[in-house]
């Protein structure tokens, strides 16, 4: 029992550092660049993407013995798209402001390689339990990156945090930070720093 728990814990935490989708595998970069200019957007995107990863991994794992090899990608895409549309409709109905701000990027979760990657490399060959843990771990790793990057970009670019003023009026907003070039700068620094702290084990 203890061994099973430990294995589960390892699956869950693997996505945070060792297999972190953003700074280790460099996947899901498009959405990371796009929505990390505000913390609220990052949180919504993190929760949405994690939900899609976990539910898609679970579904693929449950169906893994019935999906013919030749059309597996097509089946994954349909499954992922279904969950993404659910997230999109949910945000539109209950968080219209956030939905308006991140707009098309919710729909683009479909194209996030992290999700397809987990379905193909893990869920298609593992039982539902481990697949959920794996998906949750990778989702947390993605969320960790988004939250950290927006914690740098939002205060520097808007002087705010979650929409509340945190830097005084002496601070001149550094507009570049909330525009695409700022995203590239911070993401580059983020990958560099995190890879230096946690070097890849050969």
């Amino acid at each position: 029992m203890a061994e099973a728990t430990e294995k589960g814990f390892r699956l869950l935490t693997r996505g945070l550092i060792k297999d972190n989708p953003t700074f280790r595998m460099v996947l899901g970069i498009c959405s990371t660049l796009a929505v990390s200019n505000r913390m609220t957007n990052s949180l919504a995107m993190s929760l949405g993407t994690t939900f899609v990863i976990v539910s898609s991994s679970l579904s693929v794992s449950l169906l893994r013995n019935y999906i013919p090899k030749r059309v597996r990608m097509a089946v994954y895409t349909v499954i992922i798209a279904t969950f993404v549309v659910c997230v999109d409709l949910y945000l539109k109905a209950f968080y219209p402001l956030i939905s308006k701000q991140i707009g098309p990027y919710v729909g683009l979760i479909i194209t996030n390689c992290i999700i397809m990657g987990r379905c193909e490399s893990f869920a298609s060959g593992n039982k539902p339990g481990p697949s959920i843990l794996d998906g949750l771990g990778v989702g947390m790793g993605y969320s960790f990156s988004l939250i950290l990057i927006s914690a740098i970009r939002e205060p520097l670019g808007f002087g705010t945090m979650m929409g509340y003023q945190v830097l005084g009026s002496w601070w001149t907003p550094w507009i570049l930070m909330v525009m695409p070039p700022g995203a590239f700068l911070v993401l580059g620094l983020y990958i560099w720093v995190l890879r230096t702290i946690y070097p890849e084990k050969k």
Binding site: L63, Y66, I67, P68, R70, V71, A74, V75, V78, I79, A81, T82, V85, C86, L89, Y90, K92, A93, F94, P96
Partner: peptide, 28 residues
């Protein structure tokens, strides 16, 4: 088999989305 699986998955997806859309559409 391939056609059947694709068809079933798509039908399941379409039905569940239609149901969710029905609920969320008036709110949106």
């Amino acid at each position: 088999m391939i056609a059947a699986v694709l068809l079933l998955v798509s039908i399941a997806s379409a039905l569940s989305l239609a149901a969710i859309n029905n609920v969320s559409f008036p709110v949106i």
